[in-house]
Design a protein around this nucleic acid. Structure first.
Length: 728
RNA sequence: GGGCAUUUAGCUCAGUGGUAGAGCGUUGCAUUCACAUUGCAAAGGUCGCUGGUUCGAUCCCAGCAAUGCCCACCA
């Protein structure tokens, strides 16, 4: 492994070119087996060798390709993993992908649609075959992109949430909960996507603002006596004996079971217990009192449609009202909606109902009204609440466990404020609807059940299942619980919380102790990056243009303290320049070292080993060595507390300004002085070598490449070098 | 309706109870000397607003404003 200094320098062109380096270096790491936890040969001197450090990557969807969030997240994890590996830990970063039920099914459906084929044309079996084909073809693109970024993942342990063993784990977990009595089947009002033809959990909804109308509808009162009484007290119904309700969805009146008012509302007090006539349907419905009703909104009287509204469903339960299902799973009106509306689509029915009511003079007024409607997080279609037979997982005990894990500090959030987001959500959680009526997913493992499970049910098992659960594997014993989970903020409850209770319930231990909630990368204007809007930036383009190290630099440089990032490419440019600076500093230092003395001779220096602490002869020597010691501690500490941006700023500042701008210039003079020459050489190499180690987790390719050129006897690759000089 | 975050140089952002910092951009000077993907130097900010605490506030406290995000069964 010995090389003459001059020979090394000859390999250096004055510009660093990532294209000639990155693929070669990555291959070198992969072939060397350094990504596996067994990277270090066991050594008695390595005090950390018995400790493990584990991260399971948040598995990207197989429909996905790398976006800026992935790139940042992967870089963060790689920094942690590389540092721990260099510290001698048994380090595992486990990669994999998620089958992403609805998302993938939709993508493949769309793909088939181009050929004019629907999934129903193919049938379930054939369609699933198509998805598997698709997965084989495109499913691992993002994993290759992780490699381009330099991610040091153990590819031998790559998992997929639908691989054979994983399917067993999911079935096992389902049966476990079922046996325990925490899984039950019930007909409930759930979120239904009429396009995807499946139920969705509350967390799978998004909201969009919609400019609609608020319709004020007159419901005639049934008893004439009461009506007269009412008329004397109310100006709300000038044209007759009627109660006026306000609604944004007039078509649902066809399924009304009651009209509700607040029990304290003086205007309606004497109507409670009486009846109103539901127009069009000509059905009598009771007038009930319920605390939930706001007196100030609309007229203070609300139509109650238990089958098609969550609040009304609750009221329906409280008051034992009938659930009349007037909208079916295809978004069409049922027979129960009545002869004039049966078979119409929801929108058509709305028009029809409004026209009918107008004809009868029952629309008091219409007001423009802006409100939020729930939409499917996968296809954007408006969600219909409707009653449906589904599987639910009881959340009471599981939520308690998950809550306790955060409150007790067994799971810590970074930044800490995300703990509140997690806790607040858990405090009023409903049972989890875990069944989905799509084809792509884990089938419910019970006789006669045809539904599949919510994709997040399997994601919830990720840390345990990837390590072997339910088998009592060596990996599970060694690497569970994992150390850190790094993720985006929008899946704290969708995913993180569910992993916590799954881990606690199935393994009796939290799945990870620390959760990093990384920055969200926005456009320069602070807008969401979106592929469909064309506002997204492709990290692969950056890597192509500036190199992986520069891209990582740009990401970490900007992502300070988990704050939102308004992305600007200049920092990637700065990263590229920094690469060149490191490259040339190394070029200079190596050119100054004697070419031959590193391969022969008796002294440690001559053997090409690093002096533990070079002697400082001058004030400049002293200063640079002191500053180096300081930066070593600083950077180590900052990585341990997940302050990667600050660590990189410190390193940048030290290397560029203190080492290159000042000390290197001083060294040029000192090298002319025979008395100082040799010692200055030692300091130059010591500071360079140590800096390369400190920089390696952030910028792994260039540092490894330079390391390969250093005139050190029997050196290891930098990826497994000792972090701060401890034996590994 | 509730909560959280942000507000500092032209832009993107750090930071500190005591004359304000980085990257990029701008201006001037310097190239046979590791790097012009460079070096040296300069210009540029009453640190969102109003009060309070303090000898002293950009930083701590209170209130306000603007922006963004999350949560919520005002139909």
């Amino acid at each position: 492994m010995s090389r003459g200094g001059s020979e090394s320098v000859a390999d250096f062109s004055p510009q660093y070119d990532p294209k000639t380096v990155e693929d070669r270096i990555y291959k070198l790491w992969e072939e060397g087996g350094f990504f596996a936890p067994e990277a270090h040969k066991s050594s008695a001197d390595n005090s950390n060798s018995k400790k493990s450090f584990t991260i399971v990557v948040p598995p990207p969807n197989i429909t996905g390709s790398l976006h800026m969030g992935h790139a940042l997240n992967a870089t963060i994890q790689d920094i942690l993993v590389r540092k721990k590996r260099m510290e001698g830990y048994k380090t595992l970063w486990l990669p994999g992908t998620d089958h992403a039920g609805i998302a993938t099914q939709n993508v493949v459906e769309k793909d088939l649609k181009k050929q004019g084929i629907s999934r129903h044309d193919l049938g379930r079996e054939k369609f699933l075959e198509k998805i598997w084909e698709w997965k084989e073809k495109y499913g691992n693109i993002i994993l290759d992109q992780f490699k381009k970024l330099g991610a040091s993942m153990d590819w031998s342990r790559t998992r997929f949430t639908m691989d054979e063993k994983y399917q067993k784990a999911v079935a096992e977990a389902f049966l476990y909960y079922h046996k325990k009595g925490w899984l039950y089947k019930a007909e409930r009002v759930i979120n239904w996507c009429v396009r995807c033809q499946t139920s969705l959990s509350d967390l799978e909804l998004e909201y969009k603002q919609e400019d609609g109308k608020l319709y004020f509808i007159r419901y005639p009162l049934v008893s004439q006596n009461n009506a007269e009484n009412f008329l004397r007290n109310s100006a709300l119904s000038p044209r007759g004996s009627a109660l006026v309700v306000a609604t944004t969805r007039p078509e649902t009146m066809l399924g009304d079971s009651a009209v509700a008012v607040n029990p304290k509302d003086e205007r309606y007090k004497n109507l409670v217990g009486k009846k109103a006539m539901l127009p069009i349907q000509n059905r009598e419905i009771p007038i009930i009192a319920d605390d939930h009703i706001e007196q100030e909104f609309g007229t203070g009287a609300v139509k109650v449609t238990p089958a098609h509204d969550f609040a009304d469903a609750d009221m329906g339960e409280r008051h034992k009202l009938p659930f009349r299902k007037i909208i079916d799973e295809r978004g069409k009106m049922t027979k129960e909606a009545g002869a004039i509306c049966e078979g119409l689509k929801i929108g058509e029915c709305r028009d029809r109902v409004v026209a009918e009511l107008k004809k009868e003079g029952l629309i008091e007024k219409e007001e423009p009204y802006r409100h939020n409607v729930a939409i499917c997080y996968r296809c954007g279609t408006v969600i219909e609440p409707l009653p449906s037979m589904q599987w639910f997982l009881k959340m009471q005990e599981l939520a308690k466990m998950a809550l306790n894990a955060a409150e007790s500090g067994k799971v810590r959030f970074h930044p800490e404020r995300w703990k509140d987001v997690y806790i607040d959500w858990l405090k009023n959680v409903r049972d989890w609807n875990v069944s989905r009526q799509i084809w792509w997913g884990h089938k419910i493992p019970l006789e006669g059940e045809t539904d599949v499970l919510d994709t997040w049910f399997s994601s919830a098992l990720w840390p345990v299942a990837t390590l072997g659960w339910p088998e009592k594997t060596k990996d599970l014993k060694t690497f569970y619980p994992t150390s850190v989970l790094s993720t985006a903020r929008d899946i704290i409850n969708l995913w993180v919380m569910r992993m916590v209770f799954s881990g606690l319930e199935l393994m009796n231990e939290v799945p990870f102790s620390d959760v990093i909630v990384h920055a969200t990368i926005l456009t320069k204007d602070g807008k969401r990056m979106s592929k469909s809007l064309g506002t997204g930036i492709d990290p692969m383009t950056l890597i192509e243009k500036y190199g992986a190290d520069a891209t990582r630099f740009g990401l970490i440089w900007q992502a300070m303290g988990g704050q939102d990032v308004h992305w600007s490419e200049e920092h990637v440019v700065a990263g590229k320049k920094f690469c060149n600076k490191i490259w040339n500093a190394a070029r200079f230092v190596l050119s100054q070292l004697p070419a031959t003395s590193y391969s022969t001779g008796p002294s440690p220096r001559a053997l090409g080993q690093l002096p533990a602490s070079p002697i400082a002869n001058t004030d400049e020597d002293k200063k640079i060595l002191e500053r180096l010691e300081h930066v070593k501690k600083e950077v180590s500490g900052l990585i341990d507390t997940y302050e990667f941006g600050q660590a990189l700023h410190d390193l940048y500042d030290f290397f560029w300004h203190e080492f290159c701008d000042i000390y290197l210039e001083t060294a040029k003079k000192q090298l002319q002085d025979e008395k100082l020459k040799e010692n200055t050489e030692e300091i130059l190499s010591y500071v360079l070598y140590t800096s390369l180690k400190l920089l390696h987790p952030f910028m792994p390719f260039i540092t490894e490449e330079i390391w390969s050129k250093l005139p050190i006897e029997n050196k290891k690759h930098l990826i497994i070098e000792s972090w701060l000089g401890q034996k590994v």
